[in-house]
């Protein structure tokens, strides 16, 4: 599964950083860095982070499959 964070919307509340620190981190005071490719063992945490985001900026989903023609 992949994530993308709408950083246009992100206001640096950092709920995701508390809930899934292996995927999300703050770089400085409020710049968010994250790993778009979510390891399976982090999926539950990332789902919680997406649900908890006060501005609902985290989208979790499948990528377009490479075999599609």
């Amino acid at each position: 599964m992949q994530i993308v964070v709408d950083l246009t919307r992100c206001q640096g509340y950092a709920q995701c950083v508390f809930l899934a620190p292996e995927v999300f981190e703050l770089h400085g005071e409020e710049a968010l860095l994250y790993n778009p490719a979510v390891p399976d063992d982090q999926l539950d945490r990332v789902r919680q982070a997406a649900a908890a985001c006060p501005v609902q900026a985290i989208l979790l989903g499948e990528e377009v499959s490479a075999g599609a023609r």
């Binding site: 992949q2 778009p36 989903g61 599609a68």
Partner: peptide, 23 residues
């Protein structure tokens, strides 16, 4: 910064658009 691989940034779909992809 070396924190993620360049090929790991695939965008998640909101839903599968059931499209023919000519990539």
């Amino acid at each position: 910064l070396g924190r993620m691989a360049a090929d790991a940034a695939a965008l998640p779909m909101r839903r599968d658009p059931d499209a023919e992809w000519r990539l």
